[in-house]
Design a protein around this nucleic acid. Structure first.
Lengths: 331, 331
DNA sequence: CTGTTAGCGCGTTCAT
DNA sequence: ATGAACGCGCTAACAG
């Protein structure tokens, strides 16, 4: 028989109250900074709580509050910049300061199930990194959760960063002279939450500048598949500029071009997005766009802070663009 | 457009009971499949629940159960390809079948805070993808959570996949003849949860085969940094084989070698791990190891199933190895 | 001003 | 098949 077998039952507010010689209500008041108590009492309660390592039961609190202390970060099925974890880490730290706990939820193939799962947490807030549609957002808001938005594909397009990225890529691809433009999306559409907006940005730009609308192709991330996808576009013999969804796609296009014997960047210029380490390590080095998510983080942090009623310090509206082109050898 | 009025308050078991003309206790029993009720009653309750879209409050349930329905998947701070997301997706689906909801938690820089955050959910189970130390596991288990995958007697060091991967890399690197071996870890140690075991595997293998113990270097993912890291190892003039922590590191090493003008694979052979798309798209194509996480998934699924008392012993013994070398042009 | 009592919120379960 | 009580924290109302 192991004497250590005791199921550690967590201390409750009752235990703290008993130890501090007060009532449960007082414990609650002191711990939540409500009402005024003599320092003596406050101290006794705080000490008792500390000694018992008291942590209020999230379940009890959620029950009475009607919602949990959980913030759900919903992440699209895609790999955008490996610094996603850093972003989440920072959200976590920030939320922690407001007494909120962060969990991540990967968006599954079925949006409804994802939404249901998120709803099930009765989260106090949902950080949407590009997954939620309009109706999902309002559904969440109807249930009382605050949705902290980032990229909304449907609100004013000109404000959408992805829209601007599409245009930025065009400018870069055409800076060496005119060429036919193609947008290379991922083969797996589900992995492509931002592609459509970028493509839209490109279409609008070409439209404004009197250029033909770029084609859109889907490129698998293997050599053979990419090759056949690219070959169809190259057949016309004029120089081609390929704006890719991300660096991985760009690398597939480049590999295909190499296999097909076309010269880069003369006959084939390629641009990625994300500035991954890999893209900068290969030859030819990728021209790409580095996305800085500090502005996103700031916005999230502000929204998070406003949850606790803290002053919503709006930072400067227009700073520098949150993304900048990285010149490589592929344009 | 249907302007259905959003219910501000979710239905409770009381609402269902009222609608079905029974008591709350009956609702609970029927919904949880306890006790025997006439089909008539069962049906009425089930229908009422469905019509009201009743979802039991997780908070209420957690309160009475003492723990939540949450399964926390703890993910190491490492670059994860979409394969990890697929793994999590599958865990999510599997857990859902048992009425459990999955959340992901990225391991932060501070293990204690990570542990505390996980504990705070009072999870019914924790899926550890390579972050938890022994004392963390026991701490979780002491609080009543099941840590998955469960440690099994056969999980000695020799069976550790990473241990075997290290050895497999050595065999591949040395297949072209003897050369000096170096293990290239990530610069950011925090991102490297599996490297140590792989290095251990290599050390043991060399020891058994009477070869010198491989050096260990840390390689940053930029050209200049990788170059200086590699240069120190190349100075001896004999052929070098570099076993890399992953494909990204391998690409950094290759870029450095290219810059330094060494021939691949004659003077410098390189091996990665992960078989990323990028590694297969570059020239020279990477020799790497593809890791199949189906076995891991099976094990997790089995442990998950056993949470609900379902003894699911379907998994046969060791079939094929869960990883296989991909021959490229770098060895 | 300081602190307590009482009761709510929701699902589960024992005893009837 | 049900009433009542429980688990835990919060807070309105109230008493010292």
């Amino acid at each position: 028989m192991n004497s250590e077998l005791q199921q550690k039952k967590r201390p409750t507010s009752f235990d703290v109250a008993k130890r501090a010689g007060v009532s449960r209500a007082t414990v609650s008041h002191v711990l939540n900074g409500q009402g005024r108590f003599p320092d003596e009492t406050r101290k006794r309660v705080l000490e008792a709580a500390a000694e018992l390592q008291y942590t209020p039961s999230p379940a009890g609190r959620a029950l009475v509050r009607g919602r949990s202390d959980i913030v759900v970060v919903v992440i699209p099925y895609t790999t955008f910049g490996s610094n996603l974890q850093d972003l989440v880490d920072e959200i976590t730290v920030r939320a922690d300061k407001h007494g909120l706990s962060v969990v991540v939820r990967f968006a599954g193939p079925d949006p409804d199930k994802t939404l249901a799962a998120v709803q099930n947490f009765r989260p106090v807030a949902v950080v949407d990194l590009g997954v939620l549609g309009a109706e999902q957002r309002s559904s969440l808001e109807a249930s009382g959760a605050v949705v902290i938005p980032r990229l909304r594909p449907e609100d004013s397009l000109e404000n959408n960063p992805n829209f601007v990225i599409g245009q930025m890529m065009l400018e870069e691809l055409l800076s060496r002279g005119p060429r036919r433009i193609v947008f290379a999306a991922l083969l797996d559409e589900r992995s492509d939450p931002f592609g459509p907006a970028r493509y839209e940005g490109m279409k609008q730009w070409t439209n404004v500048h009197g250029l033909p609308t770029p084609d859109r192709i889907q490129v698998p991330l293997d050599l053979a598949g990419a090759q056949s996808a690219l070959q169809r576009e190259l057949s016309e013999g004029q120089p081609l500029g390929v704006a890719c969804y991300n660096d991985a796609v760009a690398m597939a296009v480049l590999a295909a071009g190499r296999e097909l014997g076309v010269s880069v960047p003369e006959q084939l210029s390629v641009m990625g997005v994300d500035a991954t380490a890999e893209g900068q390590l290969v030859t030819p080095r990728l021209t790409t766009i580095r996305i800085d998510n500090r502005p996103v983080m700031d916005r999230i942090a502000a929204d998070l802070a406003s949850l606790s009623g803290q002053a919503n310090r709006t930072s400067g509206a227009a700073e520098t663009l949150p993304f900048k082109p990285i010149s490589g050898e592929t344009t």
